[in-house]
Design a protein around this nucleic acid. Structure first.
Lengths: 236, 236
DNA sequence: CGGTACGTTGAGTCATATCAACCATAGTGG
DNA sequence: CCACTATGGTTGATATGACTCAACGTACCG
């Protein structure tokens, strides 16, 4: 992990602007993060932390994409969420004071700030607006988790795959040519949907012959989003 | 809903003792809840609030059992959690300031205190210990939701049913004769596991012939918990 | 006594998992 | 430079878990 001329982001040009969870911190508090944080650079495949480990802080993603997953029986990953620029991860373990219930692994080369737990506790204690924002964030995530439980329990793999594609569009956008701005292996897609890799492959090529998407390796081009939404039964 | 001589519980004899999320509130704050809360009595089948509605407060269960569920496609319920004495529900919607993402319905006749949102906001603002406890609660629930996503995505119905039974034992205990202290319809069981009613029926009678449980209507007697744990692949 | 909700069982079907073989690509080391 | 290996992608054949549909039993309730 050579780091030649690493540009370390300053918090006050970074998180605050983005309407992030830090938006209600005071100048002094931001300055404190800026002082105590540790900027780290990761490459694809690097692990930020492992399921079961105790962590002494949380992470704020500056750039890149991280996948957050649980490891199920016989090692199969279940991807719980992705984190991208502006998102924080591992705060759940810090706040519930439990070992990490997930592993975080880099999907696209990333720059991440590590912020010690102490600061999180301090801000929650001192700054009730921040406290409220954190609560809002957590509760929102809980709501999404509940929705996902229902989906996974009730929808078919086909519906779920379509829905995941819609979610990825919402979270990562598509470029001017219609290409989804995140590329995942078929296995990773399977590990979000909760199915076998082969099923994802088959369904993707089904979507392709139905002219809903086009495929170029890992790049997915969205042709008919409306129809995908219809298939997914998803109204969000 | 006739209420003759309703005994309204006093908060200081109630929640605080129980090592609940309210344990770090001051005497004055507890008194405030006691003053502003509204005690309500519900019978089996009554609905506390509906998915999609805006709610102006949250609920603290004094006695009884409530099921909290989302309604999926063609009206099939997905039970997310149960709430019993000492548990609070609907706080998620209040804190995230979103409409309720679940419906809450009574399973066993219940007494419930309704506490207006304002108090929750106030306590989070004024009392950082409480704020931290709420955060801990939410984050813990989020961890459980994540675990459940993984289970539902990766385990078979058989494994999940066994696991649910174990969870129910942990949450609701068994009486001196080994009977699980919560009784659910087969359909409700199916709506936790995320499967069809018929599948639950078949698997339960399978468990019965394997001498893992005995069945008396809705009452489930636990014979071989160890084996159920083994089947469920659950280590918690 | 009929009605409604719940429980049970059997039979047939289908979506999805599993297993296996094969190809493409890229990185590695001798 | 070429085998060698690992990783990811694809396709086909086969197996099966779980759902659906349907019929029927049971029990409680007004």
């Amino acid at each position: 992990m050579k780091q030649k001329e690493v540009y370390i982001p300053f918090c006050d040009h970074c998180a605050v602007q983005r309407n992030s969870v830090f938006k209600n911190l005071t100048k002094e508090e931001i300055e404190l993060i800026n002082f105590e944080k540790e900027f780290r650079i990761y490459k694809r495949g690097d692990v930020l932390y492992n399921e079961g480990s105790r962590i002494s802080g949380f992470y704020c993603v500056n750039r890149g994409i991280i996948k957050v997953f649980k490891t199920g029986i016989d090692g199969k990953e279940q991807i719980i969420r992705f984190a991208k620029s502006g998102d924080i991860i591992a705060y759940r373990s810090v706040l519930s004071n439990e070992p990490a219930c997930t592993t975080a692994k880099v999907i696209e080369d990333a720059g991440v700030c590590f912020i010690p737990s102490g600061l999180l506790y301090k801000f929650i204690k001192d700054n009730s607006s921040f406290s409220m924002d954190m609560m809002k964030l957590t509760c929102h995530e809980l709501g999404e988790a509940n929705a996902y439980i229902t989906d996974i329990a009730q929808k078919t793999v086909r519906e779920r795959l379509a829905e995941i594609i819609i979610h990825l569009i919402n979270d990562f956008d598509i470029d001017s040519e219609g290409y989804l701005q995140i590329s995942l292996t078929r296995e990773e897609l399977a590990n979000i949907v909760g199915t076998a890799t082969e099923s994802v492959i088959r369904l993707l090529s089904e979507f392709k012959s139905d002219k809903l998407i086009e495929l170029n390796g890992r790049k997915i081009k969205i042709i008919n989003q409306k129809m995908l939404e219809k298939i997914s039964n998803f109204f969000g």
